[in-house]
Design a protein around this nucleic acid. Structure first.
Lengths: 231, 231
DNA sequence: CGCCGATTTGAAATTGGTCAAACGGCGTGG
DNA sequence: CCACGCCGTTTGACCAATTTCAAATCGGCG
């Protein structure tokens, strides 16, 4: 383990936990390391564990019968995810697949233990509900965007979301490390369309492009596109 | 009030409530009646109340800046909805608008009271989390469908979902009372496309159409379309 | 230097949306 | 009781956005 129990307080759900509670959680957990591209669990697996990402980056995705992927969410350190089993019980099936975007470590907490713990610790349930409501709001909005907005807007939104979640500030702009394919999966389109749209933005000086890299030069311009004011 | 406190047990969240708890909930609630087409609340209003539908039918929708609507969910009697305020606090904004599809009545429960009640009643939080996880799963799937499937599949899925939620069995088939526009909003397309697609299905004997009415003759055929096996 | 995967780009195909017009069933007022 | 008008629906024609496919190009890394 490369962190102290108290680091767990960075996890929103454990913000108000007592030292003892944290110890107990840890005693019912194991740590897992996975390498880039590996999977933490698959859609359909029994939800035996809930996770907290301790380092790296993980994406949650769904696959349809013909193999196309949709990115639902990217997880960053100290976020909790896959908590479904601690609500539904450990035999419920994960509705998503979790894949590491880079070498990562995660704390795997037994769903059943968390479930029992929640019976007696209202702060835990309250925290989890906070998480769930904010996630519901996000995916509802994305659903609406997918249904009503055109590709350019959705790509712009995807970039902006990434910017606020994982952007690295550099001298000129904000840098993101994602492939065209990643962005396509996040905005519900194809890598070809992403390539074309962003190439046009590069011509307009809004972004600079590289291999698996996107540098946002003019975020405000993207905001205008995302809101459909441009064009 | 046209129902007894114990009827509230039909609400999943209150399944395990004591008689006293139910009384208390009612004492912090009011009943509201609204007519077809009227709104219970709008996106952006403070989430002062959580609701249980006691009769009728209500849809939850989001509107984008240019006025296009997306249907997120249809609510049937004894479902709880708009519970966000009891997690986030009553001053949070509803992320959706609720509109009556027919004359309806609803029990409006003070968010703040529910929030406090959850501090001491684990069954309440547990029930609410159940609701939220199942909703998350549904909307995640719909998001994936919207991103990866073509219109026909999505319309077929919308009809199948409606069938299981509100279908009335009649001699030949299952009857739904929704307009083409409704179906379009539920499947993320336009009423024109819905009309065309379903007209073709009528030719194939899968459905029978009427004004604001759809009779499903061959659900199995729709399932095949929904899964992309047909074409 | 050579290879592999990511990216770009063009051209063609397709899906689905838009718009306008006509249709049709049903309830209502004369 | 019938005609009118409304509203939901259908349909055609056209068109724009986006996908698909193929091929070329780029950029690192071993």
């Amino acid at each position: 383990m490369d962190f102290s129990p108290k680091d767990l307080r960075q996890v929103i759900v454990f913000k108000d936990a007592t030292d003892d509670d944290l110890e107990q959680v840890l005693s019912h957990s194991i740590t897992r390391s996975i390498e880039e591209g590996e999977f933490l669990f698959f859609q359909g697996d029994p939800a035996t564990y809930a996770y907290v990402l301790t380092s790296g980056q993980v994406k949650l995705l769904q696959t349809n019968p013909s193999g196309q992927q949709v990115n639902l969410r990217t997880i960053y350190p100290w976020e909790m995810f896959a908590a479904l089993g601690s609500v539904r019980g450990p035999s419920a099936a994960y509705p998503v697949t979790a894949q590491a975007l880079e070498n990562s470590t995660a704390l795997a907490m037994k769903s059943l233990f968390l479930k029992e713990m929640m019976q007696t610790r209202p702060y835990l349930a309250a925290g989890l509900m906070q998480l769930m409501t904010s996630y519901i709001q996000e995916i509802q909005s994305r659903y609406r965007e997918l249904a009503t907005e055109r590709v350019e807007q959705r790509i712009a939104r995807a970039l902006l979301r990434l910017t606020s979640q994982s952007g690295q500030k550099v001298d000129k702009g904000i840098e993101l490390s994602f492939s065209r394919q990643d962005v396509a999966e996040m905005s519900g389109t194809t890598l070809y369309t992403v390539s074309r749209v962003m190439a046009e933005w590069e011509r307009q000086g809004l972004v600079q492009l590289g291999r698996e890299q996107i540098r946002i030069i003019n975020p405000h311009g993207l905001v205008k596109i995302a809101e459909g004011l441009e064009k």
